[in-house]
């Protein structure tokens, strides 16, 4: 599969998982024990995390915006996801440059994952960007700092589930096939 097809396929699959499965979870989660607020787990930022390392920034921004707007349409959040995604995509390059030893253009056709980066850098990279995304998302959504505890609970709870998805993805798709795109060699 070519690099484009693979990412388009991933886009569609992640949107479907997010919209048709994960959005229904807070509904079926019957009680909220000790006032713990219901929240929706997010898996779709994974799409932005694993776009190839050599993707130009303008394409990153546009594709993240598309992803955000798609999710917004399904979740009726206006443009909150889009705003958070665009911010996340903008800072992706900076985080990657800080974590990787070589320049980004020296990694042709490689995605950020545990194969190309190693466990610790990849999880750090994911955690930083996901934290940024969730923080921005919930700040715009709640739009007040009067209940910081509530905001932090929501951000942390969502971050834990998102990181679980990232780890799950790394364990499931960490074959050599995913690390390099052979047909482009």
């Amino acid at each position: 599969m070519s690099i484009y097809l693979r990412n388009i396929f991933r886009f569609v699959l992640l949107v479907l998982i997010q919209v048709l499965l994960l959005n229904k979870i807070p509904l079926r989660w019957w009680a909220n024990p000790s006032g713990f607020p219901p929240y929706t787990p997010f898996i779709y930022p994974l799409f932005i995390l694993v776009l190839p390392l050599s993707t130009p920034v303008w394409f990153l921004l546009i594709s993240s915006f598309t992803m955000g707007v798609t999710i917004d349409a399904f979740m009726d959040t206006g443009g909150i996801h889009a705003a958070a995604c665009v911010l996340m995509a903008f800072f992706r390059t900076n985080v990657l440059v800080a974590l990787l030893p070589k320049r980004l253009s020296e990694y042709p056709n490689t995605s950020p994952n545990i194969k190309s980066m190693g466990w610790t850098p990849f999880l750090t990279y994911s955690a930083v960007l996901l934290l940024l995304h969730h923080l921005v998302f919930y700040i715009i959504e709640i739009w007040s700092f009067s209940s910081m505890g509530y905001l932090l609970i929501k951000v942390l709870a969502t971050l834990v589930t998102s990181m679980a998805f990232v780890v799950l993805y790394s364990l499931l798709f960490s074959t050599s096939l995913n690390a390099t795109y052979y047909d482009n060699k």
Partner: peptide, 17 residues
């Protein structure tokens, strides 16, 4: 481009609200 996209999303948010 980043600023343009952010402004577009903020406009969408305010319209939705």
């Amino acid at each position: 481009l980043f600023l343009i996209l952010e402004v577009v999303s903020l406009a969408l948010i305010s319209k939705n609200r």
